[in-house]
Amino acid sequence: MTTHAPRSKPVAGRKIRVTIKRAEGPGKPFRWETFEVAPEPGGNIISLLQKIAADPVTVEGRRSTPVVWDSGCLEEVCGACTMVINGRVRQSCSCLVDDIAPNPGDEISLEPMTKFPVVRDLWVDRARLFDTLKRLKAWVPIDGTYALGPGPTETAGQQAVRYVLSTCMSCGCCLEACPQFNLETDETRWDKSFIGAQGFSQARLFNDHATGAQLKSDRLGVLSAQGGIADCGNAQNCVKVCPKDIPLTESIGAIGRAVTLHAIAKWFSGRS
């Protein structure tokens, strides 16, 4: 959510403690390391990690290695740098140190997301997120890239709805916060595992497009099968952690209704 807590005045020149949950690789044991860092004014978690990388010495004086983490745009539009900061999943680029550790000695804890396998340290493998987009045929089935004139027209209102859904950067915050979505390292089980809010919302995005709707029935078939919308426990954690304020619970509702109508239509048509 984009709500801003009023900022208490950060103390200039302070040192803070950054405690990081690290692992050498997938399946390797976790360990915690703490570094003392002097944050730069206006700096974010990324700038702390960059400082640590340049001189990775723990508070015990032990020389460690630069922390491994995923990052890209650093302006909260690529989704790469997602991690669990002080127990809350969010992008580390848009997490400002002045906001969460304004005083000398304040502590920040950094952990990798738990619903995806760790690659190393704070870097996790979110391939399953993209696999979900394949499972749901999250695309518009165009007739190729030849010049065939404009696409379907839509109203400004329809555009506004689709645009917000389309700002989903596949960061995985909604899945990390979801009680129904669990770590699954066995790829062969992904197509039976819970889809989660990002997938529901992307399915809605493409079902709502005139050409994208050509695949609506396929999508609703997946969404009504195992791992689909029926498994959603309606905890509504997803919408609270979405950094882009995507109305995920509205999408869950819309998909729920569509799946019901789809089932009724199938029942009347006599096809299974």
Binding site: W139, V140, I142, T145, A147, L148, G149, P150, G151, T153, E154, T155, A156, Q158, Q159, R162, Y163, S166, F206, H209, T211, G212
Partner: peptide, 23 residues
């Protein structure tokens, strides 16, 4: 102009004018 049309067909949510055209 052909490239814009293609993106439009791919479903890019271009902002729309009151009449539903690309803004």
């Amino acid at each position: 102009p052909k490239i814009i049309d293609l993106l439009d067909r791919m479903g890019v949510p271009f902002n729309r004018s009151p009449e539903g055209r690309r803004d």
